[in-house]
């Protein structure tokens, strides 16, 4: 989550960051992070989670 927060400012608005996480809470907490921070949760595939920067 901390790495995601650090990675997002490093990509352009509209680009996607892929998070690889084996934490059992990730599937719940990454979408929650997106909602709290105004970013878009795109999709999850196993332990990979795609987040699009919106702002």
């Amino acid at each position: 989550m901390i790495r995601l927060a650090r990675a997002i400012p490093g990509v352009a608005v509209g680009e996607i960051v892929r998070v690889l996480a084996d934490d059992p809470a990730a599937a719940n907490d990454i979408p929650a992070w997106c909602r709290m921070k105004g970013q878009e949760f795109v999709a999850a595939d196993g332990q990979a989670f795609d987040v699009r920067r919106l702002s």
Binding site: D23, P24, A25, N28, D29, P31, A32, W33, M36
Partner: peptide, 20 residues
């Protein structure tokens, strides 16, 4: 999750879709 015996996040917080 780190505070529970199962090492799973709370099923209640998960069901609500809020940060766990």
């Amino acid at each position: 999750s780190c505070t529970s015996s199962t090492l799973r996040p709370s099923h209640v917080l998960e069901a609500m879709g809020v940060l766990s």
